[in-house]
C-alpha cells in the first residue's frame, strides 16, 4: 500500500517555498511583524523606510543611533507621532508631524523644540533670543542629524555651512592675509558660538581681547607700557576674517598708525607719500627711503606695539 500524505498534495512544497520566502524576507519585512531595525520603537517607521532614501537608516551611524545610551531618542521623538502619516492608505500620504528637510512647512521653532528638548544646556543655553534664533534658523539649517559626518562639526567642512550665509567672510578668508580658515585649521566655531553667547558677535568669550588671547596669549600682558587701542579692542586695528593688508590689519602702516599719530616725535615727517619711498621706487622720490614708510613702516622701530615690558619701552620700541 502506498503511503499517503494527508492534506493537499502540494502542501509540503508550498510549506517549503513559504519557509524559504518567509526567511528570505525576514530582514526586510521583519518590521511588518514589529521588529526594530535601528532605534527602539522605530518599527512603525522602518517598516517602510528601510532603505537609504533620505538617509533614514543612516541615523544608526550617528550618536543618535546609539541604542545603548538610554537617552537615545526614537524616530517619533523628533518627527512626532505622525499618526496620519502612518495610517494613511493610498497616494498623497500626509507628511510626518515634523519634517526637517529644505522647504519644510514645519516652523523653525517647532523643529528646534525637537532638538532643544534634550540639548537645551551646555553651549546652547543662550539659544533663545540669540542672533541666529532671531533670524529664523533651525538647528537643522546647519546640522545634518542623519549623516554620519555632520559637516558643520568637522573642521575641514564647517565653513561650507557658515559661508552659505556669510558671504563677506568667505571672500575675506581668501585674501592674502587671513586666519587659516580655508586651510581648515581655524574654523568659525573656534571663536564664535553660533548658538548664542554673552560676548559680542556671538564670541565664545566675554570680550574680543579675551577671545584673541586664547591663541595669542603672549599679547595679553599686562605690560608695563600699554598701547591704549590694544587693551581696548583688537578690532581697532585688526579685521579677523581676512585683509588685503599684512597681519590682518584694517589699514596698512604707516597710515593705520596715522589714524591716531600724525606728529609725535616725527612731526617733521608730514604726510607719507611717494617721496618717502625713495628715488629707486618712485621717480622724483627722496634720495633715501624713509624708514617710517618701507618694510614694516612704523613697526620697524615700534615693534612691541601690543605692549612693552622693557623699563625703557614707553614708546614700544624695546
Amino acid at each position: 500500500m502506498k503511503q499517503k500524505y494527508p492534506g493537499h498534495p502540494f502542501a509540503a512544497m508550498l510549506l517549503g517555498v513559504a519557509l524559504a520566502l518567509g526567511v528570505a524576507v525576514t530582514a526586510q519585512a521583519a518590521t511588518a511583524s514589529g521588529k526594530d531595525l535601528v532605534l527602539k520603537g522605530d518599527a512603525k517607521c522602518t517598516s517602510c523606510h528601510d532603505q537609504d532614501e533620505k538617509s533614514v537608516m543612516a541615523i544608526g551611524k550617528t550618536r543618535h543611533g546609539a541604542t545603548g545610551d538610554s537617552r537615545t531618542p526614537t524616530c517619533t521623538n523628533c518627527h512626532g507621532d505622525s499618526v496620519k502619516h502612518i495610517e494613511h492608505k493610498g497616494g498623497n500620504r500626509p507628511l510626518p508631524d515634523r519634517t526637517f528637510t529644505k522647504g519644510t512647512t514645519t516652523p523653525a521653532e517647532v523643529r528646534n523644540e525637537a532638538c532643544l528638548s534634550c540639548h537645551k544646556g551646555g553651549a546652547r543655553y543662550q539659544w533663545a533670543g540669540s542672533q541666529h534664533e532671531g533670524q529664523g534658523l533651525a538647528c537643522t539649517t546647519c546640522h545634518k542629524v542623519h549623516n554620519q559626518h555632520d559637516s558643520v562639526r568637522a573642521k575641514e567642512t564647517q565653513t561650507e555651512t557658515c559661508f552659505s550665509c556669510h558671504k563677506e567672510q568667505r571672500a575675506q578668508s581668501l585674501r592674502q592675509s587671513h586666519h587659516p580658515i580655508q586651510e581648515g585649521k581655524v574654523v568659525c566655531s573656534n571663536c564664535h558660538n553660533p548658538h548664542g553667547s554673552s560676548g559680542p558677535k556671538l564670541l565664545h568669550k566675554n570680550t574680543v581681547p579675551e577671545t584673541c588671547f586664547t591663541c595669542h596669549a603672549e599679547k595679553r600682558g599686562p605690560f608695563l607700557w600699554e598701547h591704549p587701542p590694544v587693551s581696548d579692542n583688537c578690532t581697532n586695528c585688526h579685521t579677523p576674517h581676512g585683509s588685503n593688508n599684512v597681519a590682518l590689519l584694517k589699514n596698512r602702516p604707516p597710515y593705520l598708525c596715522a589714524s591716531c599719530h600724525i606728529a609725535g616725535g616725527h612731526s617733521t615727517t608730514g604726510i607719507r607719500n611717494g617721496t618717502d619711498l625713495g628715488a629707486g621706487v618712485v621717480v622724483g622720490g627722496a634720495a633715501t627711503a624713509a624708514p617710517q614708510m618701507v618694510g614694516k613702516a612704523c613697526l620697524n622701530c615700534h615693534t612691541q606695539i601690543h605692549g612693552s615690558n622693557h623699563p625703557s619701552g614707553a614708546r614700544f620700541a624695546r
Binding site: 509540503a12 517549503g16 517555498v17 525576514t26 537608516m57
Partner: peptide
C-alpha cells in the same frame, strides 16, 4: 519536494544574510 524546499531555504539564507548585511551597512558607521 522536501529536499527542494530545504534547498530553497538554504538558498534563501544568503538572501537573508544579504538583507541583514544591507541593513547593517545602512546603520553601521563607515
Amino acid at each position: 519536494v522536501l529536499a527542494a524546499s530545504i534547498a530553497a531555504i538554504g538558498l534563501s539564507v544568503p538572501l537573508v544574510a544579504q538583507a541583514e548585511d544591507d541593513a547593517q551597512n545602512l546603520t553601521t558607521p563607515d
